[in-house]
Design a protein around this nucleic acid. Structure first.
Lengths: 135, 135
DNA sequence: TCTCTCTATGTCATGTTATTACATCTGACA
DNA sequence: TGTCAGATGTAATAACATGACATAGAGAGA
């Protein structure tokens, strides 16, 4: 098993901010939370986010222009790279992360048929979660 | 069969610009193309886009912050609302639009299981198309 | 130890995407 | 003709993201 890559100071701060939040944060939201730690510019946030997203420790939600800490465990250095689905509640902001092998398989099948080489997959559901529906 | 809704002048211009393009355009790209027609501000573009997207004549690509004309026929006023998948070639910019009932079904199944009410679904594949792979 | 180099960091400026607020125009129709 | 609603026009600004360049610190090797 490979070791998890060590994080730099700013990466640690950014990941901490996202882990501590109970929903997605924009880069500027993160910046506001980290001003007390001395961060001052958006670029510092974006620079820290890039490798975190790359490593899968943070996900970018394209439909919100914001970021969430990955719900899975990264302390042991490895995780699945099958595409992730995000269900985003527009009422409470909570994001549920899951992956679905059937969906992945189906998309791979389409790609194979038409000769498309898939890199990153974005799959986001916007709607209302069970809790908010009940309320 | 319901009739297609009539478009306003600016909506016609914007849809025309998107139909004429051979790939996705940002709102500001569209604006640049429509300056000769007298459009001057981003808001004019965004205002025209909103109902076009609403009606499904235009799709927004979240991962590119840009827009494409829907590949399907809207002249007869009706089209399927099953979620659409976009395959975006990062080399040539071409966007292929398709829908996959199995994927849709699978996602509906998940939503049902956890009690999530899905509104809009975003499903975008970034990668390389057959043509660009061959080149 | 010195210094070279690589990575991370800091800062300013700017580029790109999207909306708020408010004014004006136009056509339907009472 | 008056007025009302929808479409349009314009300025200003908010929100998201990156380019360019300077600085700091840690580790390798002379």
């Amino acid at each position: 098993m490979t070791e998890a890559k060590a994080l730099t100071k700013n990466q640690t701060l950014v990941l901490g901010a996202l882990s501590g939040a109970n929903g997605p944060l924009s880069a500027y939201d993160i910046l506001d939370r980290l001003r007390p730690e001395g961060l001052r510019s958006p670029l510092q946030i974006y620079r820290a986010l890039a490798p975190l997203v790359e490593q899968g420790r943070v996900h970018r939600l394209e439909s919100l222009n914001s970021f969430v800490a990955c719900a899975h465990d990264h302390t042991h250095g490895h995780h699945s790279h099958s595409p992730v689905v995000f269900a985003i509640c527009e009422t409470c902001g909570q994001v549920t992360e899951f992956s679905d092998e059937k969906v992945a398989q189906q998309l791979r099948g389409w790609a194979k048929d038409v000769g498309f080489k898939t890199g990153k997959t974005t799959l986001e559901l916007r709607g209302t979660c069970r809790t908010c529906l009940a309320a």
